[in-house]
Amino acid sequence: MSTTLITGASGGIGAVYARRFAARGHDLVLVARNTDKLEALAAELRAAHAVSVEVITADLAEPADLALVEHRLRLGAPVDTLVNNAGAALVGPFQGSAPDRMDHLLRLNVAAPTRLASAALEGMVARGHGAIVNIGSVVSLMPASFPGIYAATKAYILTFSQGLAAEAGPKGVYVQAVLPAATRTEIWAKAGVDLAQIPNVMEAGDLVDAALVGFDRREAVTIPPLADIGLWEAFEGARATLPSGLGGAPAERYRLPASA
């Protein structure tokens, strides 16, 4: 039986992932800050699906708590799928953002998923199989539309996932980046955003179900609200061809005229 570890599992997207993987017969390790919500969800899933559910209370922005989950991934019973879902938003321009809030966002949105993927990968490669799902955001593709560093943290998740897929895919480890648009979760209220002011909000259940279709298809990048896949293929195609024109000398357009 497979085991899936899900961060940010006490509500929203993480809780839906927990329900969906439990319905598929996966044992679970649920990680979040709210013990009561985790225990209630664990009891629900044990009763509904007869799966084993382990609960770890942890704030992944705190080094000691992050180390606890890393230890579970490295030295505990094998985890076959890691869902890096925990994250936060920080709304507002870069100028004037409190440094401690930006530091917290970087620790939660960038450092934590990186270190957990590192902790999970070694065992997956040794076993010859595994999956890492990293929850990013479509704002990684449109940073000018979302001021501040939130979009940058999600751009890191996309690039990190693509690089990790290139490295780990040949070793049997599937890596998926999921890029949601606005989704109905508590992240917005915590960031001080009125979700009623955002158009076309997707329900968390619809988001996860679409992401799991991409997961089953072994997509490298899944963008649930994107209707025309040709747009992404064109974007990726342009990105893939760009390095072929990069060399060791400055391009001609950057060479100064002899008279300059």
Results as ranks from 00 to 15, higher is better:
M1Q: 12
S2D: 13
S2L: 13
S10L: 07
G12M: 05
V16G: 09
R19W: 08
R19N: 07
R20A: 12
A23D: 11
D27N: 15
V29D: 00
A32R: 04
T35Q: 15
L38P: 00
A43V: 10
E44L: 09
R46N: 11
R46P: 10
R46S: 12
H49Q: 12
A50Y: 02
S52H: 14
V53S: 09
V53A: 12
D59R: 04
D59T: 08
E62M: 11
P63A: 13
L66C: 06
L73T: 05
L75V: 09
V79Q: 10
D80Y: 02
T81D: 01
L82Y: 08
N85K: 04
A86F: 07
L90G: 00
G92L: 00
Q95H: 13
A98H: 10
D100M: 08
M102P: 02
L106M: 14
R107W: 00
L108N: 03
L108K: 04
N109R: 03
N109I: 02
N109C: 04
V110A: 11
V110K: 04
A111D: 14
T114N: 09
L116M: 08
A117I: 00
A119C: 09
A119W: 11
A120N: 12
L121T: 15
A126Q: 14
R127Q: 12
R127F: 07
G128D: 07
G130F: 07
A131E: 14
N134F: 03
I135N: 12
L141E: 09
A144W: 10
G148A: 00
G148T: 00
I149Y: 01
Y150L: 00
K154Y: 01
A155P: 03
L158D: 03
T159V: 13
S161L: 04
G163V: 09
G163K: 02
L164C: 06
A166W: 03
A168H: 11
G169K: 09
G169I: 05
K171C: 06
K171L: 15
A177S: 13
A177N: 13
V178C: 05
P180K: 04
A181F: 10
R184V: 04
W188A: 04
K190S: 10
Q197T: 14
P199Y: 07
N200R: 14
V201L: 04
M202F: 06
G205H: 06
A211M: 05
A211S: 15
A211W: 01
V213W: 01
G214I: 02
F215M: 08
D216G: 11
R218F: 08
A220D: 13
T222E: 11
P225Y: 05
L226Y: 08
A227K: 15
A227Y: 06
I229C: 07
G230H: 06
W232A: 14
E233Y: 11
E233A: 13
A234P: 07
E236T: 12
G237Y: 10
R239L: 15
A240S: 12
P243R: 07
G245Q: 07
G247H: 14
G247Y: 05
G248T: 15
P250M: 08
P250C: 01
A251F: 12
R253P: 04
L256S: 14
P257S: 11
